[in-house]
């Protein structure tokens, strides 16, 4: 088994899982299983980006049964995830992807709830404080990548719930 501590679903050790199925209904089930596996895996391992070309990723490469998912299939599954707002390609070739196990909107709500809870309205909070601070270790968005965080805050900005400050010396947000 891969070293990753993870509750693998039964499909993970089922060889046909790594071949795109021909039968439409079967394929739908298979793709669904992959989608939830990818999101679960990323959430448990706090993985914010996936590179399709990285073949050693235990998520797509099961060394125990010696099967790996084809890169093309991965891309098509990630495209499916993109449609529900759970993934977004970073580069034009769709090699690198950001994975959102919570969609941007969900993340925005989660962060805004947190701000309200801590009474941080009308103050400037740095991005570092939000995601890297030792106090916030228990939070869901602890360790969130800067790029993802900015996208979340932009979403909040659109909702007029915060203002993003991206100066050279200070990167933060003022919540309303």
């Amino acid at each position: 088994m891969p070293e990753v501590d993870m509750d693998w679903p039964w499909q993970y050790n089922f060889p046909p899982f790594y071949t795109l199925q021909q039968h439409p209904e079967t394929r739908a089930k298979q793709v669904d299983a992959w989608k939830s596996l990818i999101l679960n895996y990323c959430e448990q391992t706090k993985t914010y980006t996936i590179d399709v070309r990285e073949t050693e990723n235990p998520l797509f490469n099961n060394t125990t049964i010696n099967r790996k998912l084809d890169g093309g299939v991965i891309t098509s599954i990630l495209s499916e995830l993109q449609r529900t707002g759970n993934a977004c390609p970073i580069d034009k070739n769709k090699h690198r992807w950001e994975i959102y196990w919570h969609t941007i909107e969900e993340w925005a709500a989660i962060i805004y709830d947190f701000v309200n809870e801590r009474g941080l309205q009308n103050t400037v909070v740095t991005l570092y404080e939000l995601t890297q601070s030792e106090d916030n270790k228990e939070l869901m968005f602890y360790g969130m990548h800067r790029e993802v965080l900015i996208k979340v805050l932009r979403e909040l900005e659109n909702q007029r719930k915060c203002e993003l400050i991206l100066d050279d010396d200070v990167e933060g947000a003022k919540f309303f």
């Binding site: 071949t19 021909q22 039968h23 079967t26 099967r67």
Partner: peptide, 12 residues
């Protein structure tokens, strides 16, 4: 059998 959804394939 596969076409009728009774089997699934493993192409390795």
């Amino acid at each position: 059998a596969e076409k009728l959804g009774k089997c699934c394939r493993d192409d390795s």
